[in-house]
């Protein structure tokens, strides 16, 4: 359902929520934001729980830094905690570390909500059509998105070749030494691939600043306006309640 919404109003709404999450230093607001985004993904979009939890790992690690600093080293808690505590919409009775922790998770979950319900190609096309993102930049972004799975495939082949050379079975996940050894070959692969893609795009007529049309322009629909309005309305209501 959320996947059918136009990516740009959805992006704007998510950015507004993230902005509010950054500005409002209140545990209740962060929890509501986190719960709402989680509920939409798990309940409405049927995203697997393990996937959501896995996606939150980097945000949790980031937030955990604030939490441990606040709890274990309260006296030495850093400038960030101090500033956060002095924000206009702060609720100072709650540990600032806990608020920062939930804020990291809330922002992460809203980001996941956007990423998991948006077609990346559609987003880039919408940016090119409605926000005048230059076509070469747009297609470079698409190439970057192609590059990720290609790099993963190349890395697997390089790892297999390395395992053969070293005469030992390939581990499921690469260790630090292996990552270091693979960095330069992968970088070289990425440069080679990007060069070929740029050449092919030029040969197929992509020019900077030249007029071009779009096969399909995703129109703004009433449901996009309604969804945007509803999102802003819920945000206003939550802010009023907290």
């Amino acid at each position: 359902m959320l996947g059918n919404l136009h990516p740009l109003p959805k992006l704007a709404l998510c950015l507004i929520w993230i902005g509010a999450s950054v500005l409002v230093f209140d545990l209740r607001f962060q929890l509501v934001t986190l719960t709402l985004a989680f509920g939409l993904l798990w309940g409405l979009q049927r995203v697997a729980l393990w996937k959501l939890l896995a996606l939150m790992v980097p945000f949790a690690l980031f937030g955990f830094g604030f939490l441990t600093t606040s709890v274990l080293f309260n006296a030495e808690s850093g400038f960030a905690l101090q500033m956060a505590n002095e924000q206009a919409l702060a609720a100072p009775d709650i540990s600032p570390g806990l608020v920062l922790f939930t804020r990291a998770l809330a922002c992460g979950m809203v980001s996941a909500l956007f990423a998991l319900t948006t077609d990346p190609g559609g987003l880039v096309r919408a940016l090119m059509v409605h926000l005048r993102l230059p076509a070469p930049v747009g297609f470079a972004l698409m190439q970057a998105m192609h590059l990720v799975p290609d790099l993963a495939r190349e890395m697997q082949v390089l790892r297999m070749a390395r395992a053969m050379r070293l005469g030992r079975p390939m581990r499921r996940l690469p260790g630090p030494g292996e990552v270091m050894a693979l960095t330069i070959p992968l970088l070289a692969f990425a440069i080679r691939r990007a060069t070929r893609a740029a050449l092919a795009m030029e040969a197929r007529g992509l020019r900077p600043n030249a007029p071009r049309t779009q096969r399909e322009i995703l129109p703004f629909q009433t449901r996009d306006g309604l969804a945007f309005g509803m999102g802003v309305g819920v945000l206003a209501a939550v802010l009023w309640l907290v």
């Binding site: 190609g121 192609h146 070929r196 197929r204």
Partner: peptide, 13 residues
């Protein structure tokens, strides 16, 4: 123009 390494020269998503 169709390039030799077609799989690395696709532009779209």
């Amino acid at each position: 123009f169709l390039f030799q390494d077609a799989d690395q020269t696709l532009a779209g998503f």
